[in-house]
């Protein structure tokens, strides 16, 4: 749980690893339309660790889905390393996902029939490349699993599986790592070590991490927390602490128009 010192700004501090402009996503049409995101502007500079927080239904997951190019936005732009990828077709977005975006999921999402090392190599293989063995070995070493490289996921603990998933997210040296509730399925101690690992990816490797979470303790590992409510930006907090984040979340919860509940 040690906080490493913040890194020196990388070579091109003006380029954001990920940037979204007036990002909007509406589900449904006409009177029944629901805006999951309504005009969000956010920029994530290289080498930073940002947590995106908000009550359920605030649009955090939609934000991640759009940033990863899994779905096209209704309007607004998505820029990866300054390049506008919004209007790319499905195939180009697939290439984007496997080459310039790294993913860490709540449920790990390892392939059950591939060993740890093969799971890490997978994005490179899907891209038609040949995995660099030394790099893959170094990544597994970095996440502390050099000795479990030949194990299948079923033989690994939840925390170990998530470490493999982090190594996989880093294998293509992506522009940005998107993490969706990465500690949601882990106990608090394991969660702490996984978050420290994400922190180290930023500090030691200069990676950019954007993490969606609802856990104030997880958010406290980030450099910055941005809050979403009802699909809109509702504030940000630099150098967060778990207490401050929890306090802010409690206030935000009161802002949400609750549905009528009859008991």
């Amino acid at each position: 749980m040690t906080r490493l010192p913040l890194p020196a700004p990388p070579a091109a501090p003006t380029t954001n690893a990920l940037e979204v402009r007036a990002l909007t996503r509406t589900y449904g049409e006409g009177a029944g339309a629901v805006a999951a995101l309504a005009g969000v502007d956010l920029a994530f500079p290289r080498g930073t660790f940002t947590a995106v927080m908000g009550p359920s239904g605030s649009g955090k997951s939609t934000f991640l889905t759009l940033a990863a190019g899994l779905e096209p936005p209704t309007s607004g732009r998505v820029l990866i390393e300054g390049e506008d990828v919004t209007d790319w077709d499905e195939e180009a977005r697939t290439r984007l996902r496997r080459e310039r975006v790294g993913f860490v999921f709540q449920a790990f999402h390892l392939m059950p029939y591939l060993t740890a090392v093969q799971n890490v190599e997978l994005p490179v293989r899907l891209a038609g490349g040949r995995p660099n063995r030394a790099r893959v070995a170094a990544l597994l070493e970095h996440v502390g699993l050099a000795d479990r490289a030949r194990n299948l996921p079923a033989a690994l603990s939840g925390g170990q599986q998530q470490r493999v998933a982090i190594a996989r997210a880093l294998v293509t040296d992506p522009a940005v790592v998107l993490a969706d509730e990465p500690t949601g399925a882990l106990d608090s101690r394991t969660a702490g070590s996984v978050l420290a690992l994400l922190r180290a990816c930023v500090d030691a490797l200069g990676q950019t991490v954007v993490m969606v979470t609802h856990d104030p303790v997880a958010a406290a590992f980030a450099d910055t927390v941005v809050f979403l409510v009802d699909g809109r930006l509702a504030g940000r907090m630099d150098r967060p602490t778990a207490e401050a984040v929890a306090g802010q979340m409690a206030r935000l919860d009161e802002l949400v128009p609750h549905e009528a509940v009859t008991v």
């Binding site: 195939e91 996902r97 080459e99 392939m111 899907l126």
Partner: peptide, 14 residues
């Protein structure tokens, strides 16, 4: 699992 492959960057054809 097939959806997972897609999330990781496999094309539907792959």
């Amino acid at each position: 699992e097939l959806r997972r492959l897609w999330l990781l960057g496999a094309t539907p054809t792959q």
